[in-house]
Design a binder for these strands. Structure first.
Lengths: 215, 215
DNA sequence: CCTCTTGGGGAGTGTCACTATCCAAGCATG
DNA sequence: CATGCTTGGATAGTGACACTCCCCAAGAGG
């Protein structure tokens, strides 16, 4: 298919597709003539993933490029590719290291992870971005006067630990080849985030109704 | 305290505070003279909440203004204020209603909520933004080739339902007065989101290591 | 041959969250 | 009282970002 058809089938304007091509989010089409290129189903699939990352996941173009680059990097093995891809996902601003609340938060986060046995082992000697994300959030809560203790966080961590089993089951279900599994892992990581947040808000609304609701 | 001190104690530049004052995110200070105004602890508290919403929660200035307006609206009762405030939180683009995947997703979401007994009752006859958020996310997953059934979603919903109980416990713990409770609810809703997402990524990394990790 | 379409690329657009600059009116010090 | 500094208010500008407009040269199609 040519660019116009790719645009029609994906619902993305040709101008935007050209922008993505320029930015390296989409591999160039197979050149047919000097002025025409052909795109295949793989391009369509990739384009939809890009749109999902950017529109639903709120991922920036730059981050998306990194994520996709990790996905395509043949020099990495299965697990590394997955890690690198998720690593590149956005994770907010890091906490101010000079703030004492940050140090408290870091200790609390580490204690929680130790309690759960979620060590990063000897292989992953670098702390993942998600760890910094957690520290920032805890520090901010602290600063706002909502200290959350390890006990407060434990139920969340346990619940998410169980859901992670489910997440990985989904990845294995969808992914036939290793490539597909890695892509599925990225897509599911990002696209289930709004699902989680939406369900949480609905659950809170329901619980709030139960407690405070006048009937 | 004057603007400079408010800036120093909050870590926000005077220029930015003036911007927030202009945008109505912060109530004006008590005018001392024609050229000076005084701010109190309440301003500092509000300013920190604004920063948390915007920086950590990723809320836009416009959304933050709506959230805060609901917080301050004395014409609403406790429960209404909470609902209105959370209602104003950002919830992404709505799904394309012409896409058949959206209709499928809506049916699936409704079936899930019915199964859980999370009806919105006769009072809340309008569907909350979180519902649209959920539909959009499910539709996108569908379109990308990752259909998620009601059975897939149920464990997430149940887990978040349990966590919502915990969330509301926290709100009641922190909030003394009704005003404080509503503010706590908003702050905890927004600020626990990165905590959840970070813990999920860490949990997934842990589970991935268990399954695929070379030791 | 003539018109239309295509892909490529540079430059422009709109949005958003600030931020730099200016200004008049105090306040503080000699 | 003069002088310089600070304050709050307002206007206009900045930089990042995700597109989007427009033009062009080279085919494609009749």
């Amino acid at each position: 298919m040519r660019l116009a058809e790719l645009s029609e089938r994906s619902g993305v304007s040709t101008a935007t597709i050209k922008y993505y091509l320029r930015e390296g989010l989409l591999p160039p089409g197979r050149r047919i003539t000097a002025t025409q290129a052909e795109y295949d189903e793989e391009h369509l699939r990739r384009l939809r993933l890009v749109r999902a990352l950017i529109q639903v996941g709120g991922v920036s173009v730059a981050s998306a490029r990194e994520v996709l680059a990790a996905l395509d990097d043949d020099s990495l093995d299965h697990n590394e590719r997955l890690g690198t891809a998720v690593w590149a996902l956005p994770h907010g601003r890091p906490a101010d290291p000079d703030d004492p609340a940050t140090e408290t938060a870091r200790q609390r986060a580490d204690r929680l992870l130790e309690l759960l046995g979620w060590g990063y082992g000897p292989l992953t000697d670098v702390t993942p971005p998600a760890h910094a994300m957690l520290v920032t959030a805890i520090a901010t809560l602290e600063r706002l006067g909502y200290p959350c203790t390890v006990e407060d966080l434990t139920p969340y961590a346990r619940a998410l630990g169980q859901l992670a089993v489910h997440d990985l089951d989904l990845v294995e279900r969808y992914g036939g080849t290793a490539d597909e599994q890695v892509e599925a892992a990225v897509a599911l990581t990002v696209l289930y985030e709004p699902v989680l947040l939406a369900l949480r808000r609905l659950a809170e609304a329901e619980e709030s109704r139960r407690r405070f609701g006048r009937q």
